[in-house]
Design a protein around this nucleic acid. Structure first.
Lengths: 119, 119
DNA sequence: ACGCTATATGCGTATATGCGCATCTAGTGT
DNA sequence: ACACTAGATGCGCATATACGCATATAGCGT
């Protein structure tokens, strides 16, 4: 019984080395900030400049810019200079599925908690 | 242009309120620790006692116990007392899909980086 | 009751990271 | 050249959290 495999029903993922774990953890960490999720959400409606994102999310320019750096480094968004502006856009299409998946299972967990409270 | 919707191709998720954002962020945060990912990975092979998980992951008892608390509070794992031992098991089946999804897109990103280095 | 084992937890420390202020850089128009 | 705007970044602060040590709790056997 040495190093068991991921997935509940024989889906055969990678053999779980340290590097892979670190990468996955990092990816989740990038998605674990509310402001970054707001940015991702805003960008799903289409590409946006930094200033537009500042307005849409209500954050400060500094903060938004830094979060966008983080998202870009993670390969989740891409940037394009256009004159004075920097336009950001989602580049990783799987992000949508990720959020869907999480939202779905959260909804399910919450509703079963509701059921537990009102049986 | 007020509060755009998630998902790139009309998948209609929740309207993105603050509470939802916080919950999703929290879920990702729970998954952003390498040791917790190792625990999840180990648990996919079947339920395990704390001591077994300590052996499998190489962590300390204190640390493993605390991470298991975190995972349990997040509803990702469940626990069952069996005599002296506490047996933990995955309860959220979507976790597997999540990790698959992340691994998949990371693999893709990495391979395109490889292509960029060796065109 | 006593000791042993398995887990959980209070406390302190080290590190990471989000945030804002001020400032820097770069492109644009006068 | 100068001023203006959009964005990025150095620095410092505040907070969160992972980790370990020691200890508490709880079930089991003698």
């Amino acid at each position: 019984m040495s190093t068991p495999d991921f997935s509940p029903a024989g889906v055969k993922p990678a053999p779980l080395n340290e590097a892979a774990i670190a990468l996955v953890a990092r990816r989740f960490a990038v998605l674990s900030e509310p402001m970054r999720l707001r940015l991702i959400h805003a960008l799903f409606a289409g590409e946006r400049s930094v200033n537009e994102l500042v307005d849409l999310t209500g954050g400060t320019q500094t903060n938004i810019s830094r979060h966008l750096q983080t998202l870009a480094q993670a390969g989740i968004v891409g940037r394009r200079k256009e004159g004075l502006q920097t336009i950001y856009a989602i580049t990783d299409p799987s992000i949508g599925q990720l959020c869907e998946l999480v939202c779905g299972c959260l909804k399910q967990q919450l509703s079963s908690q509701v059921d537990a409270l009102a049986p």
